[in-house]
């Protein structure tokens, strides 16, 4: 896909920043045990909005039931302060959870494990709130033989769903977008899986958000010229290596029309 093709619609490629939330704070996992406190979610969200982030995703905001009221209040605080769209995900187990977070002010919910275990929740959420509120997150891993496997429970459990049929199924069920995380790329810093992103984006009629592997601004350009509708990253922005503005400037210099 050429720059010209990428620019043929007025719709622009989106740069999305992901924030992991634990107990009301944004955290960064350095390894399985240690979590580094990154700061207040509302403050960080506003900082990223000011950098030019097109959207934000808050993950694990809702992971534990005990923290539910705190998490809902936080979502309302974010909705009141942010003037760009945001998605919440992680630990939404039933339709009531989805409803609670959308009613609290989230623009969209990301469903991963629950989408696999109870796929009807995609249809139910789309019916009740509209497809635009549903993002199905798909964690996919490519093994050394090139075989693609779909994983749930934070990448710990392989499921039987065939990857491409699952992508098509979630679109048929009414998801508005697919958040495609290439586990084999995650943490490598070698860039998004552009080939896989392109395959999904060209063949599934919903927006595809590429995730996993981003380290430089070039990785964004590569993904957007391989049909990614949006790209999501966390580390390269949280570390301060890049601002969203720097990535967008690079994309603009390369000829892509960005916000």
């Amino acid at each position: 896909m050429s720059i010209q093709e990428a620019n043929q619609n007025s719709l622009m490629p989106r740069v999305i920043v992901c924030l992991d939330v634990d107990n009301g704070r944004v955290v960064k996992g350095t390894n399985f045990k240690q979590m580094r406190d990154m700061g207040d979610p509302v403050e960080l969200a506003l900082a990223y909005e000011n950098q030019g982030a097109d959207e934000l995703v808050f993950l694990d905001i809702s992971a534990s039931n005990e923290n539910r009221p705190t998490a809902l209040k936080l979502v309302t605080d974010i909705a009141k302060n942010l003037s760009i769209p945001f998605t919440v995900g992680g630990g939404l187990k039933k339709l009531d959870d989805v409803k609670a977070f959308l009613d609290a002010g989230a623009d969209k919910v990301a469903l991963n494990t629950t989408a696999i275990l109870k796929p009807d929740i995609i249809n139910q959420t789309a019916m009740a709130y509209g497809s635009q509120c549903v993002v199905v997150a798909i964690d996919v891993n490519k093994d050394s033989d090139g075989k693609l496997g779909v994983y749930i429970n934070g990448g710990r459990q392989l499921v039987e769903n065939e990857f491409f049929s699952w992508c098509n199924e979630v679109a048929d069920r009414g998801t508005g977008e697919i958040l495609l995380t290439a586990m084999h790329k995650d943490g490598t810093g070698s860039g998004f899986d552009t080939e896989l992103t392109q395959q999904v984006s060209k063949n599934v009629p919903v927006q595809v958000i590429a995730s996993g592997g981003a380290k430089t601004e070039q990785h964004y350009l590569d993904a957007f010229t391989h049909n990614a509708d949006a790209c999501l990253a966390a580390g390269m922005f949280h570390s301060g290596d890049y601002t969203v503005g720097q990535v967008k400037e690079y994309l603009a210099k390369a000829g892509l029309i960005v916000r």
Binding site: L11, M12, G130, P205, V206, Q207, D229
Partner: peptide, 13 residues
């Protein structure tokens, strides 16, 4: 629309 729903930022004419 190439994909539905349309989601994202677009410039106005």
């Amino acid at each position: 629309f190439p994909k539905k729903p349309m989601v994202g930022w677009a410039k106005l004419d």
